[in-house]
Every structure is written in C-alpha cells, then in structure tokens.
C-alpha cells in the first residue's frame, strides 16, 4: 500500500501530463513536435555562442572574404587571443579590483545589518527595513549626477574608489533584505541560549550568526558578483580614462581602438569574457539559478 502510493507520487511528480499514460506505437510520432521544439531551442541558445567561439580563431581575411558559417582554418592559431589579452588583462584587473572588495563589503555589512534588523529587538526596525527596500523603486540614473559631483570634488575621479563605493551602496539593498529573510527562519532560541551563556550580541553574530549563514552568504555573493561584474552604467559613468576601464566598458571601446573593426581580437575578447563566466557556471550552476530566482521573487 505504502509502496504503490509512493510510486504513484514519484511518477506523477516526474511526469505530470497525460502523455505518460498511453504507450502506443504512435508515441514516438506524437512526441516528434516536442523533439523538434527542443532541438530548435538548443540551436537558438547554443549556436550564437558556438559561432562566437569559432570566430575567435578566424583571421581578418576569413571574416571579410569567407562564409560566416564556415569553420576557422586553424584551431591552434591563438594570435587573436594574444592581441586581445594585451588590453583585456588590464580591464580584468580593474574589474577584479573593484568587484571583489565591493562584494566583501556588501556581504559583511549586509549580513550584519540583516542580523540587526531581524534578531535584535528595537523600535523602528520595520521602518528601516522598508527604507532599504525603497531602493528597488529608484532607477540607477537618479544617483549618478550627485555622486559624480561628489567624487569629482573629492578628487576621486581617476581612481577605482568611485566604483567600489557605488557598487557597495547599490548591492546593499537586496542583500540586507534577503539576509533579514534568512535570519527570520532561524529559531530565536539559538541566540537566546548564547546570551544566557554570557555571549555579547556582537560575539553571537561573529561566532554563530555569520557562520550559520555561510550557505546563504555564498549564494548572495554569487548573485551580486554577476550584477557587479556585468554592470555597465556605473562603470561607464565613473571611469574617465582607459586605465580604469572595467571589462564591460573596455570591451565596448575595444573595436574603436584599432580604427577598423578587427574581428578576430574583438571575438577573442568577448570570448574571454564569456569563458570566464562559463567557468564559474560549470561548477555553481544550480546555486546560480536558485539564487537569481530567489532574488527575483523577493525583489
């Protein structure tokens, strides 16, 4: 009895819909449209990326005189990558130097604030949480001009500081909100017990609250990483010369640098950008998908 009901449940969970129940000879034929849809979907998603990768090995002559869909003549010709790397390396360095410190600040400050808003008891915490939420309404364009003025007056333009500060402020809103939600799920008894044992609240946070949140912190850091790494608007506004360009801004100016469009190096530069993200995605794809979906539902 239990076994049948269990079987039934897993079967329906795996395959809702009526097709499953009829297994006649025409089944394959009936499923053909579905197979065609899936095949089309895979082509639409994967082909542009495959084409990009193939292009990164082509010479300028192959681009201009060859067929767009042809394979490159050589897969071992890394000239395009060498040319691209000479400028992309600086962009990558700038991106890392702005995104990683911002991420660390966002995670530490955001988790502490989430803890203070959810575990501690004080008047006005509901209002403060709403204050953090208000950010979702504000388009990024609203904050650019005043910040640019301040950074200019403080002589910070020409450094990476404007990006780090703006990124941290931008990432906090969602992080604080999500961390507060996660802390809500932890039984208060945990922190009360620590208090009875004589721990100060700061100590509770450092040795219990933050370590407990390791998993959530990693997910949020990952989501924020993609937001910051892929940012164009803020980086475009606050970088004034080539030495501070992040990957995205640098990539946008890449073609202009040579006057004529140099297809091979441009493709290689885009490819480096894509492969980097792919490397992260291969290991953490389930976490990325869950994290982004959670961010959307809460945001």
């Amino acid at each position: 009895m239990t076994i049948t009901s269990h079987r039934g449940k897993t079967r329906t969970a795996a395959a809702p819909g009526p097709n499953r129940r009829r297994r006649d000879p025409h089944r394959l034929l009936r499923r053909l449209p579905g197979h065609i849809c899936v095949a089309l979907l895979l082509i639409v998603v994967a082909y542009p990326l495959v084409w990009l990768f193939l292009g990164s090995f082509k010479t300028q002559d192959e681009f201009l005189n060859g067929s767009a869909t042809a394979l490159p003549e050589s897969f071992t010709n890394f000239d395009n990558y060498t040319t691209a790397w000479s400028s992309v390396a600086i962009y990558l360095r700038n991106s890392l130097l702005t995104v990683l410190p911002s991420l660390a600040l966002i995670v530490i400050l955001g988790t502490a604030a989430g803890f203070a808003l959810e575990v501690l008891v004080w008047k006005g915490r509901q209002t403060t949480l709403l204050l953090f939420l208000a950010d979702i309404m504000i388009p990024g364009q609203m904050i650019l001009l005043p910040l640019f003025t301040v950074y200019f007056q403080l002589h910070l333009t020409g450094t990476l500081w404007p990006l780090i500060i703006t990124y941290t402020a931008t990432g906090l809103s969602l992080t604080v909100f999500m961390m507060a939600t996660y802390f809500r799920a932890i039984p208060r008894g945990v922190f009360e017990a620590a208090t009875l044992d004589g721990a100060t609240i700061i100590r509770s946070f450092v040795s219990i609250g933050f370590p407990m949140m390791r998993n959530s912190v990693l997910t949020i850091a990952l989501v924020q990483f993609f937001f910051l790494w892929n940012d164009l608007l803020i980086a475009l506004t606050f970088t004034t010369d080539d030495a501070q360009r992040t990957v995205q801004v640098g990539l946008l100016n890449f073609t202009g640098q040579f006057g004529v469009v140099e297809y091979g190096p441009t493709f290689a530069a885009i490819c480096i950008n894509v492969l980097l993200i792919l490397a992260i995605y291969i290991f953490l794809n389930q976490r990325v998908m869950r994290g982004l979906a959670a961010g959307a539902v809460k945001g």
Binding site: N230, Q248, N285, L292
Partner: peptide, 9 residues
C-alpha cells in the same frame, strides 16, 4: 546560461 552573460558581450 545567457542570463548571467555580460550584457555588453
């Protein structure tokens, strides 16, 4: 996968 690719790319 394309969701997390940089918009510029």
């Amino acid at each position: 996968f394309p969701v997390i690719l940089p918009t510029v790319a």
